[in-house]
């Protein structure tokens, strides 16, 4: 009799444990799904770098494909072979009249692009700081900051530099970390491409033509191509060979109409 009771108890216990394990398993899966991924990086600086970089690259890629603006005002809609859909490509130099040389529509191109990047990257930076905050709070830190975040962008050869000001104070037990400024460097060649783009635009405005092939030879790290559209516009594509980064823009000037 006792033997039978013991067996029954064992079965019941086994069943409870089994059910418990199943429930635990299910619960732990859910927890894993809901958990936010950890931010890479040992410190705030590197965490910020890792967080911002993918989005920044995407923003710069978009700006590069569209001639320096996220939403160009004066543009031509065009699709190249490697693209899945057409894009609006900004006219950097434009004249609606036939025969007349184009007028530079964006004389301070680099400043403009800096502003465009800044405009797009600011919400990303804020978001990244929020993620960092969450991350540190999970680790038991008290986090204060993210109230007055200022951002400035600088472009130079091979680099995009973000200067961020954000007074952060982290505290845990006896440890206090304070950070006020962050200077992040990102490898990017958009500046190099734009300097050359400006040179091409100047030549188009001055001479109704550009020595793009010669510029390509003098700058072997950059491939430059010139494409004429059916409606008498020109699209230039500058590609940094090392990483395929592209800057593309349109020009309309000295248009010669058919006939007389």
């Amino acid at each position: 009799m006792n033997k039978k009771r013991g067996q029954a108890s064992l079965f019941v216990l086994g069943g409870i444990i089994l059910v418990g394990l199943i429930i635990l398993f299910l619960i732990s899966r859910n927890i894993e799904i809901k958990q936010t991924p950890k931010i890479q990086g040992k410190d705030i600086h590197s965490k910020l770098q890792y967080c911002i970089e993918p989005k920044l690259k995407e923003i710069i890629k978009t700006i590069g494909e569209r001639g320096g603006s996220v939403n160009p005002e004066l543009y031509i809609k065009f699709q190249f072979e490697e693209e899945k859909e057409p894009h609006n490509i900004s006219f950097l130099c434009y004249n609606n009249l036939y025969y007349y040389p184009c007028i530079n529509q964006n004389p301070l191109l680099i400043e403009h692009v800096k502003n465009e990047i800044k405009k797009e990257v600011e919400p990303v930076v804020r978001e990244c700081f929020e993620k960092i905050k969450e991350d540190y709070e999970k680790k038991g830190y008290s986090y204060s900051g993210n109230k007055n975040i200022t951002l400035s962008i600088n472009l130079s050869e091979g680099k995009v530099i973000l200067d961020i000001k954000n007074n952060i104070l982290l505290k845990r037990e006896n440890k206090t970390i304070e950070k006020k400024e962050f200077r992040l460097f990102f490898d990017d060649y958009i500046y190099d491409l734009m300097i050359l783009a400006q040179e091409i635009v100047n030549q188009e405005a001055d001479y109704c033509d550009s020595y793009y092939a010669e510029l390509s030879i003098l700058n072997p790290q950059i491939d430059i191509s010139k494409f004429r559209t059916s409606d008498l516009n020109i699209i230039y594509t500058l590609r940094y060979i090392k990483n395929n980064e592209t800057f593309r823009f349109a020009v309309r000037g000295c248009v010669i109409p058919p006939g007389i």
């Binding site: 007028i103 530079n104 301070l108 400006q198 635009v201 100047n202 001055d206």
Partner: peptide, 24 residues
């Protein structure tokens, strides 16, 4: 001619309006 005071580049055939508006 529009001179970019930051980059120190010169841009041909730029309008006065566009140049000055952007700090050139």
């Amino acid at each position: 001619c529009c001179i970019d005071p930051f980059e120190k580049t010169c841009t041909s055939r730029a309008t006065k309006q566009q140049c000055l508006l952007n700090g050139g």
